[in-house]
Design a protein around this nucleic acid. Structure first.
Lengths: 199, 199, 199, 199
DNA sequence: ACTATCGGGACCGCCCGTTAGT
DNA sequence: ACTAACGGGCGGTCCCGATAGT
């Protein structure tokens, strides 16, 4: 039956989860494959059976995270009401990411560092962001169409919104005790929206 | 007599510069001490004579960069006019940082990744940000006092501003060809200020 | 009914052929069992079902090659005419081996390297050579008997002949473009025979 | 003083010698760098300080061996008497190589196997042989000039001579107890020369 | 102040072979 | 007969840092 396949997928999942834990705790470079295997309680043979390299695991974790984020974004798409209130209703999402990703975000930050140098990682890391930007650009266009938002280049406006989110995330991760980052997120979005509204 | 000391200072400087180049090109972990020494055309012994460890060099580069940034900020402090236009006049600075730091910023991004795990690095990396925040908080307080800005928690407002700056920087570094980041910076600040003004 | 067995035999043959290709291309050590299996489009399980080990495949390829060589030699045995012209008529064979074995010979060269250390391989690799020597020794004895060849120790003479063949082969394989090895083979045999004739 | 440098060269020499021993005993692939280091009683750090890679050591051993061989050849160049007797006087050299290289030759055989695949090794291994061939070609030309040798393409004749030497060496190494290889070498050269003489 | 040499250690990737399953 | 999953282990390379020497 599918017994074998199930077991294999379980092993794979255990490896991914162990890798995520290790990367989050010690960082990518400081995490050895052996450590991940030990955490997952499998052999190195199993590791390299399921993944091509250490980086491949990383890439998979990255894309999974980015996809999850996009999924959450899509769920909010069906926001009733006008665009400004739609945007404001997103601050819980940002706060949620802030809270839940506190331990994972550092990994992705490190990943981004690598993305600058590695073409493959760069593509994987940047493409989703371009999609996010398209998502927000469409929202802004809708807002302009409905007359609730001032006229701005939607692409630039979207980049500003995403920039704010990233910046708050970064600060929240580095200096968790340095401020009420949930409040900063909320206030940031509120201010941003205010600055974008027609009046 | 100062000959000896001068020569030593020059070696030290060459090492720092070589390290900056290497870190920027390959990242911290991928850069070996030997590589830095080769670039600086000195032996490893010289390296360890001037620095305690690879990380020590990194720390020194970090603080130098952050101090330079703060210096640029201080120069702008003597802004005449009201606070909103003072803030807006800062966008060239951000654009400048965006342009000039394009090659160095990745290093500090990586540094931040490490800051999460390493107490020493964390302090060095976070303290300046707290200073930046105090700087902007004071600006916002002044704006509220002069009646040009809405009432907000100045600390939170400052964090929002810094977040925006970071977020634009990050995007600009990762995806330089993905947008006109100078324009994004300008538009972001303009919108932010609009959203903060009394009306 | 023979269906099952046929299929198995085909798999076995595909593995052997794939192994030969891989060994020739990358050498014995640099060729992994996985690579051979990939080339043969079967799983590693199949490999180890048909062969005990990587070396077993190697041994099988070796003996097959040596047997083939001996077969070609036997075909020439029915040489009419005297011994000297019989020997000279063998130079096309050497040239043929030179041409056809260009890609396989390196494998066996490597095999010989191993033969020095491994008893099992040594026996497999050396025994045929002793047979070749006996073959030529008998020819030389015949030549001496018929009065066309000088008196020499037939065993030593045979070794000289085989040595010449090996040496030309080795050079031809290493430095194919370095000379006209077919001509070298012909001239070598001719000279050798001249040196062996009574006058 | 030169104390330090002396010690370093001693270490280097110990490594080379240990490598030669190990390669001869177990073959190139089966010899680990760690093993060589252990034999030489130095650390891996020392190994990689003196050599770029395992292969670099191999290459150095190879070229040293080939150069030594060429040196021995050059010493014989000042042969008085005519060319035929000059050639015959070389058989002790071949016998000597046969005896002394019995343990090293397998290494170079393996090296040659690699030479087929690796451009760098190939060049290092083949160039000397081309030089040998030029050496013998000049001898043959001299012999033809003095009228003691038949007219043959000197390049081809030289290749034949070298081929004979290689072939005897190969057999002697593989099957040391299978014959009197010294006698084979002598008889081979004698026969060859006889076959080349004018009558 | 600066160098050459060296020590000790760790890491990624891979590899050969086995076994549970089909 | 054949497969996928896995175990256990090793090997080359490199790296950080220390030391002995100038």
């Amino acid at each position: 039956m599918a017994d074998r396949q199930e077991r294999a997928e379980a092993t794979r999942a255990r490896l991914l989860s162990a890798a995520e834990r290790c990367f989050a705790r010690s960082g990518y470079d400081a995490t050895s494959v052996a450590e991940v295997c030990a955490q997952a309680e499998v052999s190195k043979g199993a590791f390299y059976h399921h993944f091509d390299s250490k980086q491949a695991v990383f890439l998979e974790l990255l894309t999974a995270w980015l996809d999850r984020l996009e999924g959450q974004l899509d769920e909010l798409r069906i926001g009733q009401g006008d665009v400004p209130s739609g945007l404001i209703s997103m601050s819980p999402l940002l706060q949620d990411v802030l809270r839940s990703s506190a331990h994972q975000f550092p990994i992705y930050l490190e990943f981004w560092s690598r993305a600058i140098r590695d073409e493959q990682i760069r593509r994987a890391a940047i493409e989703p962001f371009r999609r996010y930007r398209r998502f927000f650009a469409r929202m802004l266009e809708a807002g302009m169409a409905e007359g609730s938002l001032r006229m701005v280049d939607p692409k630039i406006g979207a980049s500003v919104l995403i920039g704010l989110a990233i910046g708050v995330l970064v600060q929240g991760v580095f200096d968790p005790s340095g401020g009420d980052w949930g409040a900063v997120a909320a206030e940031g979005i509120r201010t941003m929206v205010r600055g974008m509204e027609v009046n």
